[in-house]
């Protein structure tokens, strides 16, 4: 019973927050709703016994991705009036996409629920292990090449982002921490005896 209450509560909050994302007038509120929806989705994972995935969802999406979303949205100066003008024009296309998605999900859900779909046979490799270790076993034995390939794709994307934004500006004085730390009184200071009324010769 407690599990059912938890599920319906979390599911209702997830859906409600998802609705908030598309209906808020302020984009920052949209991102905050998105965060709420991620967070309750993580709660849904916990109710299904996938606590490792739940924590990863919070760490990666809520803790890192959504922070950057918020960062960008706060910096943008979005003109809401201009955004709303095209609403009537885009309405039919948007409605069509939403309708297709809804029909697809209903078809898949009924097919899966009535046993029409061949469910991917999930090998219970080590039923006694907690799911962290099970995921580790599966990722690093059965699917190690796909896993490494996915890592490679992310690495390429990261290098690409750095190459696109890296600029070497000539003529900029850069700080060299090593030089600063290695400075001694001898190399950084000169003691000059000044005779009164004469000043220093450069």
């Amino acid at each position: 019973m407690a599990l059912a209450i938890a599920f319906y509560l979390l599911a209702a909050v997830t859906v409600g927050a998802g609705f908030g994302v598309v209906s808020s007038r302020n984009p920052v509120h949209s991102v905050l709703f998105l965060i709420l929806s991620f967070f309750s989705a993580a709660g849904l994972f916990v109710t299904m016994g996938a606590e490792f995935l739940a924590m990863l969802l919070v760490v990666v999406y809520v803790g890192a991705v959504a922070v950057l979303f918020l960062f960008v949205v706060m910096m943008l100066d979005v003109d809401f009036a201009a955004l709303r003008q095209g609403f009537a024009r885009y309405m039919p296309v948007g409605g069509l996409v939403a309708g297709v998605l809804a029909v697809e999900m209903i078809v898949i859900a009924t097919a899966a629920a009535t046993g029409g779909v061949h469910k991917a046979d999930s090998p219970q490799l080590h039923p006694e292990l907690p799911n962290i270790e099970t995921i580790g076993h599966v990722l690093y034995t059965d699917y190690v090449y796909f896993f490494q390939a996915a890592g490679l794709v992310l690495l390429v994307a990261m290098i690409g982002a750095i190459v696109l934004t890296l600029r070497h500006k000539p003529g900029v004085r850069r700080q060299s921490i090593v030089d600063q730390v290695a400075r001694t009184p001898k190399s950084g200071m000169r003691v000059v005896q000044i005779k009164p009324g004469q000043g220093i010769e450069q």
Binding site: V28, L32, I35, E51, F52, M55, L56, V58, V59, V62, G63, A64, V67, L70, F71, M74, P130, I132
Partner: peptide
Amino acid sequence: DINVGVLYLFAISSLGVYGIIMGGW
């Protein structure tokens, strides 16, 4: 006493930034 205690703490501490961002904004 959960199995993912370390990850839980990591997740919670990574959420801490929201209070500051939201307050500032």
